[in-house]
Design a protein around this nucleic acid. Structure first.
Lengths: 239, 239
DNA sequence: TTTGTATATTTGTCAAACAAATAGATAAAT
DNA sequence: ATTTATCTATTTGTTTGACAAATATACAAA
């Protein structure tokens, strides 16, 4: 019988130190804007050299958990990651899941259909002129003569606005990854004029339905849009 | 009028280098398992010192994008983050959003109610004995005499299993943050025996409804559970 | 054929120093 | 007296050079 030994994994000192400080931040033993000791002092405290301490701090900086400033009043401070940084981090994770094939197209479209439908319902029940105006602006833009990149960017903004209209930050946070995950597919089919035109019309139908507070029409427009994207995708796969 | 100058932000060399390599990874110019040049060579290539290169690589390591090994066949390799690492990263981001007050309890419960209801529908339509068995096991466990920590962990597993039953990896990925986000609230009320008992009964009702493919009963059980959590939370706030 | 050993390579760590930014104190000029 | 310039101390940013530790490869010995 094969004996399974412990990983024994002697991790690098820098990683161990980074993990210690991170958990101190996450469970509140270190508070936001608090100043860490200087790198020199940390080196003494952890009995390692300054470069090792720096590697640890850079790991934390990569996760937006600390920031550093030079000078006498400088140092390394506990930082509160901004919502935008956290959203961006989630979006990156979602993109990696897609590029490494963890999400198949069917799963992505199903999730998006279900979740965006849900957002639709809430958006209509909280109908708000401001968001409607922003959606109309994006549709206008998409009808005009813009580049494929601008079209894709506008597409993202259109759907994100729809999600923002739910007035629910948790849904907004989660939809980032779903919208982002579908983007490669959008890019693929956005460079054909006919496809773009069709998509804009679905967007307009969606906008109108929300404006009229017509849930049924809105759900149909969303279904049609996603069905259309699926068909286009599968035909592109064959062709 | 105050003039707003550009940030002018001269970022550290290590950060610039890390960002360059990261974008090369993300848009596929560097492929998984590919070996980067040695730290020495990178130092020459970017015209900086080795510690600076190392700080850059450690930033990437913190994001699970590279791994390093010592020795002749060692070096720094492009790594594909595992789904679990990415989920953990999302969970951490969600936790930070909660602890920094970006999500209020109403938004969290609304999102969870809506999204878990959606998962419920899919889970029933894809009813699977394996997942049902796992849910039953968790309910049994929750009925037994376990610590509060174990109870909370089991609660997470119960709901995660429900989500897994949708067989949709995108939903699974997203629900991590919603389930995680509600956890502080769970912890708060899990240390009272009566509350625990009530929660288990809702879990059991949920399990039974899915087993019987009774969507209506399942939605009611979920609603009741979340309503109960809300009531408990608000009474705890007052008390 | 197996086992041990040397060797080269590469990351991990350390030590000491200088560069650059910057807050605060001090001196100079108006 | 108030502003401006300069100095100084402090802290992160970066460099250099070195040694330690791990490990794949080749080679020698049993």
């Amino acid at each position: 019988m094969a004996i399974h030994y412990e990983p024994l994994e002697t991790q690098s000192l820098a990683k161990q130190i980074a993990d210690k400080i991170r958990s101190a931040i996450l469970d509140g033993r270190l508070k936001v804007d608090e100043r860490l000791p200087t790198e020199e002092e940390l080196a003494v405290k952890f009995a390692v050299s300054r470069p090792t301490i720096r590697e640890a701090l850079k790991r934390l900086a990569a996760q937006n958990l600390v920031r550093s400033r030079r000078g006498p009043a400088g140092g390394t401070f506990i930082k509160r990651p901004t919502p935008d940084e956290l959203r961006r981090s989630v979006a990156t994770s979602a993109t990696l899941m897609v590029t490494f094939g963890e999400f198949d197209v069917d799963a992505i479209t199903e999730a998006r259909r279900e979740m965006e439908r849900l957002c639709l319902r809430l958006a209509i029940s909280r109908r708000n002129e401001d968001y409607l105006k922003r959606m109309a602006t994006e549709v206008e833009l998409q009808r005009s003569d813009i580049s494929d990149e601008e079209f894709c960017a506008s597409d993202i903004r259109f759907h994100q606005t729809l999600v923002d209209a739910t007035a629910n930050p948790v849904l907004q946070f989660n939809m980032v990854s779903v919208i982002e995950a579908l983007q490669p597919l959008m890019n693929m089919i956005a460079n054909r004029f006919r496809e773009r035109e069709a998509i804009v019309e679905y967007h307009y139908a969606l906008y109108r339905a929300i404006k009229d507070e017509d849930l049924e029409a809105a759900e149909k427009a969303l279904d049609d849009l996603i069905d259309y994207l699926c068909v286009q995708y599968h035909s592109a796969q064959r062709g």
